[in-house]
């Protein structure tokens, strides 16, 4: 078809707005993850929001820039890392007695560093879910492009 697309990504307006908002989206995702044991949220929702910030970058600037920020190898590493971290936390519970025993000091309620293993589990799930969703999106993007050209 026509070859008017010279540089990847969307128009200048979208790129400018993305440059302003993508950091805030990432920060909001991190906030949701780290405060998952105090306020509504948690690892799953926060991980989805973090993945969406990278997907946002990819939609606006094309896949090359987004893959330079977070390559598919790194995403695969983070996915495995999240799973291993979650499983390790569960296995470390055997120190206190049983699988997923809350073995860390619980602290005062409403503090950021409280609730034992729950924030750590939230972070592990965030790695897993965020990298997993990003990997799904990358797989959909990467496997679509060559078929379109050939």
């Amino acid at each position: 078809m026509n070859k008017k697309i010279k540089q990847p990504g969307m128009t200048l307006i979208v790129k400018t707005i993305t440059r302003l908002t993508v950091g805030l989206i990432l920060l909001y995702g991190i906030y949701i993850v780290t405060h998952g044991h105090i306020s509504p949220g948690g690892g799953f929702a926060g991980g989805v929001i973090i993945a969406l910030s990278f997907i946002h970058l990819m939609l606006a600037f094309g896949k090359d820039l987004a893959l330079r920020k977070l390559s598919e190898k790194l995403a695969a590493f983070f996915e495995s890392f999240g799973a291993i971290m979650f499983l390790t936390i569960g296995l470390l519970g055997f120190i206190g007695g049983y699988f997923f025993f809350n073995f860390i000091f619980k602290g005062k309620p409403f503090n950021l560093f409280s609730a034992g293993i729950i924030p750590l589990c939230n972070i592990a799930i965030c790695f897993k879910v965020g990298a997993g969703l990003f990997a799904v999106f990358v797989a959909l993007i990467l496997l679509k492009v060559p078929i379109k050209k050939e």
């Binding site: 998952g36 044991h37 105090i38 306020s39 509504p40 949220g41 948690g42 996915e79 999240g82 799973a83 979650f86 499983l87 569960g90 699988f99 997923f100 809350n102 619980k106 602290g107 005062k108 309620p109 409403f110 409280s114 609730a115 034992g116 293993i117 729950i118 589990c121 939230n122 592990a124 799930i125 897993k128 879910v129 997993g132 969703l133 990997a135 799904v136 797989a139």
Partner: peptide
Amino acid sequence: TGATNLVASVILDFRAYDTLGEATVLFTAV
């Protein structure tokens, strides 16, 4: 559990074994 968000305390402490299986859903999706 010490968590003020009761949902988090249920899914990550009382029922963490279920969450362990649920976390692999996206891996299956990939």
